[in-house]
Amino acid sequence: MRNRLKVLRAERNWSQADLADKLDVSRQSVNAIETGKYDPSLPLAFKIAAVFSLPIEQIFSADEVAQAAE
């Protein structure tokens, strides 16, 4: 799965620690999600969407969908 977490975070000038605080997870968790090494659960993905005030599909996309769009 791909995500735009890093870009969205940078747009808001948030550090990984800032986002981690908002999501109530560790900074390592945010880093692992950003780098695509860990796919969050559905509840956490919805929480991320709520923090960025965006629909979930504007943050996350399946690899095949992202490749097709490129």
Partner: peptide, 9 residues
């Protein structure tokens, strides 16, 4: 061991 935020306490 653990990490920052949720894990440190």
């Amino acid at each position: 061991n653990c990490s920052e935020s949720a894990g440190k306490p």
